[in-house]
Design a binder for these strands. Structure first.
Lengths: 403, 403
DNA sequence: GAAATTAGTTTTGCGGCTGAACATAATGCG
DNA sequence: CGCATTATGTTCAGCCGCAAAACTAATTTC
């Protein structure tokens, strides 16, 4: 890896990103002068950069608020709505779908299809997903928006660079080259792990911005509970990716070396205690029941449901305790089925982590139910696309030389 | 966190770093022209940057090799020996010491003192360490070298920003503000976790360079086995640091929920199976015996030693299997006592990780005995200081504006 | 010893940021 | 109402650092 030479154009590139970041991460809209203040650039430079960003539809001049005191009022700047949009797609055990989000963070349109995709045919499913995506793209293109890229979320191990899904135990898929089957030509599509994108979705406030606000969540472990259990580490707004992006496989951490055998070939994996199917079976409910049914039953005092949830919470707590010792993060966001069971498992998980994590006395650990629960992986995917644009605005601006 | 504005000076800064990286990471010494080729900068620019680096004693013009073919021979460039040096210090359960390394990666001088520091007095120990450090500093300053900074490695949880040691179970230290007690005025000293610095030391080839050579180790998990068990994740040459740098506490991962109780307050921690003392006790040897004694006994067929080592290897393998599932790294470097036991535990650990890690079939996991075994934490500390200089040469160059 | 080849330096030009002056748009007070 | 005050945003000269090309330097080849 050789570092690239920096010329004047990379200065410009970086300052465009700096200005964009300032505008998008501001709590209240900034004027050009405000941006100059916050970034340290001069007003002259900011003016030039902002006008470039405006003509690239990355930043918009907002309508002036009624009035605000002395001096010439500044023109407030903000995300440019309905211009550049990102496409998020997802294939999961129980549904597939796609969704389009704009720079303001609004969902422009979405389409979700419920379907049991366990042991499905990748070719057929991807064909349907692509059809859905093409519909959405056509619709928004009609309205003069520009889809800058797409992310497809799948519950499995993916080679991000090539778009190859190596294995997705709960779809029964293995070694699938996704991109040719999707066949969305001319669009920058990447395939990612579901939990990673869902984790990213938790970071974001109403707008797609960066993560500068002190109140916003930007460093945490996200746990995605479903048929499988995945997780993601978000550190200062960025994903930890390990070597291939295959980190966070908490579902296959060993809880009991002689426990029940798992789809992955081992015994006693967390998934066998705290996975969706394990909980439903233990609770004595049919395999396809919604997790809310378990939660309701447990809250009503149903013994089997209660026991199933307790066992899951206990196992999850143990796994998380080791996890946090290893990665040193003090916030855990529970998503998917764990968000629905949150009130029932919080104390169990909390007890494990506060006792088991060496640093818990120095920095107490907080548990949160996921704030973003509606199709977080799709949302995160669409937003990740846009975030990439904001991180390097020059890359999507005609006339600006690009790395 | 607001991104800083980039001006002309940051261009220069970055290109200085680029040129430095190119020179330090080259397998064979590069000339100015070679640097221009590899970086993409023009010869003119490289010339200017190199002459600045030479006059800052960061780069040296090496003597010309006899001859090498057509055209005017280039002047080979390389690390500048005996100019800028880094100081590494370490306090551990069995010894303390300090060591000075120069940009060429040579140990300029070192001092190690063997001492049992379990339950020692921080004030006294730090006084002695500081005395040692001052001696070394005086000696190298005498020889016209300049100590650019220092790192102190300790086996515990440290707040790097403030230099406060929160807890070091095996020293029996707690809540110690290290820097005032060290009192090395005018020197940039930072306190770090021992395993992190030892891990960093494994990345480096003979010279302090960057990690560009394909043969060099630059992405791995390092496990530091001693009285305690620490670890570090090195990703592309950089440490993963979590939120506070308290990650990698593999020693307190739970192996058996009802196992023997541990110094940390829990039961069944890895340390109780694979820590130095646990192994010695199980092997029936006195508590202060060197680990090589266990290794020798086990290789000779001694039952107790063999069983102790097997139990340790098994537990370590289980812990690592979960670890790797969570962090997605495919190389594990075993250091400290595990380097000495390597041939005895390799198959056990290997079996666990190749079976237990979900991605092991896709990317086989390699186990290595640590290449850098002599006081790796001190070495890593000294080198980390220098690495920081190389990553931002402008920062230590008079006349160059600094961020 | 002249041509060829490669290394390194000097010169000129240009892009991009800075700083100051200037133009613009609002408030406030007599 | 009019003018000073205040703050925003733009214009213009100046400077810094890299690029490109011409030029000088050192060595091999024939």
């Amino acid at each position: 890896m050789i570092r690239a030479a920096a010329g004047q154009h990379s200065l410009r590139q970086q300052n465009l990103a700096t200005v964009t970041e300032a505008i998008y991460s501001a709590r209240i809209p900034l004027s050009r002068a405000g941006v100059a203040d916050r970034t340290g650039l001069t007003k002259a430079t900011v003016s030039a950069l902002v006008s470039a960003l405006v003509s690239a539809s990355i930043v918009a001049e907002l309508p002036l608020p009624p009035t605000r005191g002395l001096g010439r009022p500044g023109v407030p700047l903000g995300p440019c709505p309905r211009s550049l949009v990102g496409l998020g797609m997802e294939i999961n055990a129980d549904y597939y779908g796609a969704l389009v989000i704009d720079l303001a963070g609004d969902i422009v349109s979405d389409r979700i299809v419920t379907a049991d995709l366990r042991s499905s045919n990748p070719r057929l499913v991807l064909r349907d997903v692509a059809a859905l995506a093409r519909e959405l793209i056509a619709a928004v293109t009609e309205q003069e928006m520009h889809v800058v890229g797409a992310r497809l979320a799948v519950p499995g191990l993916v080679r991000v660079a090539t778009g190859r899904l190596e294995v997705a135990p709960n779809l029964g898929w293995r070694a699938v080259d996704m991109l040719p089957l999707l066949d969305l030509e001319g669009l920058d599509v990447a395939v990612w792990n579901e939990a990673k994108l869902a984790g990213l979705a938790q970071t974001m406030g109403p707008a797609v911005g960066f993560d500068g606000t002190p109140t916003s969540l930007n460093t945490f472990v996200y746990v995605s509970g479903g048929v499988g259990i995945g997780s993601a580490i978000v550190l200062d707004g960025a994903l930890y990716q390990g070597l291939h992006g295959w980190n966070g496989e908490i579902g296959h951490v060993t809880i009991h070396p002689r426990g029940p055998s798992c789809r992955c070939g081992n015994r006693g994996c967390l998934e066998q205690y705290a996975g969706e199917e394990a909980i439903l079976v233990a609770a004595g409910l049919p395999l396809r029941s919604p997790m809310s049914a378990v939660a309701v039953a447990a809250r009503k005092g149903n013994r089997a449901a209660r026991a199933a949830v307790d066992r899951a919470g206990d196992a999850l707590g143990r796994a998380l305790s080791d996890y946090l010792n290893l990665v040193d993060i003090d916030t855990v966001v529970l998503g998917g089925i764990y968000a629905e069971l949150f009130d029932l498992i919080e104390h169990l998980v909390g007890a494990h982590v506060s006792e088991g994590v060496l640093s818990a006395q120095l920095a107490p650990i907080s548990l949160l139910a996921a704030p973003q629960r509606q199709y977080p992986a799709m949302t995160g995917g669409a937003r990740a696309v846009l975030k990439a644009v904001l991180a390097d605005p020059a890359g999507s601006m005609p006339g600006q030389r690009h790395t």
